[in-house]
Every structure is written in C-alpha cells, then in structure tokens.
Amino acid sequence: MNGQAYAALAELERWMNGGEAAPDRLGDEMSADSQLPGPRANLELAEKFARHFAVPELAGGLWELLVEWAEISVEAAGTGNPREFLPFCAVQAMGAHYGYADAERRERIADAFKRAMNDSRWRMREAAAMGLQSVGEQDFGLLRALLEAWKRGANELEQRSFVAALAHPPLLKAKDNARYALSLAGEIMEELAARPVREPEPLRVLSKGLEYALSVFAAAEPEEGSALLERFAGMSDPRIVRIVKANLGKSRLTRKYGPQTQAILAVIDKNSKGNYDSSN
C-alpha cells in the first residue's frame, strides 16, 4: 500500500478509536489515492476501507459520513472524478456493515444499493454489486431476502446488479446458493425474452452481465446449469441465443464440461439452420 492509502486508513482508524473526527481530511486523502481519473479505481483501498465497517458499532459520525458519501451525485462527481471514489467506497462499506446494522440502517443501506444500481456511472453500479456480495458473504440468507424483495418489477440495471452480485464464486460454494442463482437468472432471462420494449443502454448492460454470469453459475452447479443453458439455447430470440453462446465460450465451461457445451452449441446450430430453411 502506498503512503496516501495508509494515511487515509490511519485517519479512519484514529476516528474509529475515539480520536478526532476529520471527515474532510479523510475524504481528501481517499480521493487523492483513488487512482482516478484512470481505468481502474484503487480497489485495494476500497476493500480495506469497507472492511473497517464490518462491525456492530460505529464511532460517532461515521455512519453519517457513509450516508453523505453514498449520496454524492453524478453532477458533483462524475465518472473518473477522484471524488467518485467516495460514494464507490461508501456503498461497499454499507454492504460490509449491513449484517451488523439495525433495521433502520438496513433500510437506508438497501435504498443506497438501489440508487447505485440505477446510477449512470458504471463504477457505482459495480459498487452496488460488490456491496451485495459483502452482504452475501456474511449471510447469504440476507442477500437472498433483499433480492426476493426487489425482483418483482426490477428494471434491467437492477437485474444486472442481481446477477453480478451472485456471480461471485465464494457465494456459490453452497449448492443451494448456486441453485438459487440459476433460478433467479432463469427468471431474468425469461423476462428479458418476453419484454416487448427494451431500452438500448440498460439492455446492453444487463446482457453484458448475463453473458458471463450464467457460466459462473453453471460451473458451480453443472447439471442444472447445463439444463438452463440448453433451455434458452432453443429459443428463437437472437439476443437470448447470443447470451447463451457467450457463456458457452467461457473457459470455465469449455475446459471442464466440453462435451456438454458442444451439445448445447449443436442445439443452437440446429435451430439456426431450421430458421434459415423455413425462411427460404
């Protein structure tokens, strides 16, 4: 860790241990070591910052700091602005704190997740997924309860956050968790196929998420995962078929489950030839 990152975390630790609260200085130090503007924020610092909030009691003012940072808007800190790092870190820290929080704070955290899922900044959408992963790592039941409460009527950006959060191998070691991920992904795929009006950008974001997440779920639960991919491989919707083909090309499936992936690709080829023949 470089000096700036250490200074930011040392400042946070002083605050948590009863020292002077210096929110402006902490924000400046975090922003200075954000590695923004740039293609990749300082994920190491963000993770270590969040880890400090995986506790039941927060020093005075720290919860309010997270709330304030999480609400920093795109107008105040657009994509690549060093201060975008503050809401990015705050949402992840809220995820770390969720399992320890009381009902009121959990509601505030859930609201922050929903805002981040729908943020125009891609990095904030990633923060939402990462925050949800922290919830699931502590208690998958808490994550599942959130997703079940949100899934009805969820838009494409929210659905993308659901699958991105679940496409985290540590969460999928338990078979029941992997089966839940496949079930929810199947529901989202069915809704996507049935949705008559699709906004181009949210659809692109959701599709990109599905194009890798299904393979993560299938690798964790191969039998049910193969069945899901085969089911959607037989659809006529080209967007759905592209999602399936993208997953079948992932090395996590081709290396261990080559025959199964080839069999599903054969279904796609057969259907595409059938569609061509029927149009001529």
Rank of each mutant, 00 (worst) to 15 (best):
A110C: 13
R160S: 15
A32P: 00
E104V: 09
M16W: 06
H52C: 10
E13C: 12
G258H: 09
W15A: 04
S251E: 10
R14L: 09
D102P: 11
A21V: 09
A96S: 04
E47W: 13
A246S: 11
A174K: 12
G249F: 06
R231F: 15
S31A: 13
G131R: 00
M117E: 14
A22G: 08
A174M: 11
A227W: 08
L206P: 13
A174C: 09
L172F: 05
T79R: 05
L214G: 07
R125L: 00
S278T: 14
A128F: 04
K151R: 12
M1F: 12
D139W: 06
L86E: 05
F140H: 01
M117G: 13
E11M: 10
L43V: 01
R239G: 09
A77K: 00
A145W: 00
I243Q: 04
E84K: 08
P39D: 00
Q4C: 02
I268C: 14
L210C: 10
I72A: 00
E156F: 08
E20I: 03
F49W: 05
E158C: 14
N2M: 03
N155H: 12
V67S: 04
D111A: 15
S120P: 12
L210P: 08
Y6M: 09
A194T: 04
L58Q: 03
R83W: 03
G274W: 08
N280F: 13
L58H: 04
A246I: 01
I243M: 06
G136N: 03
G27F: 04
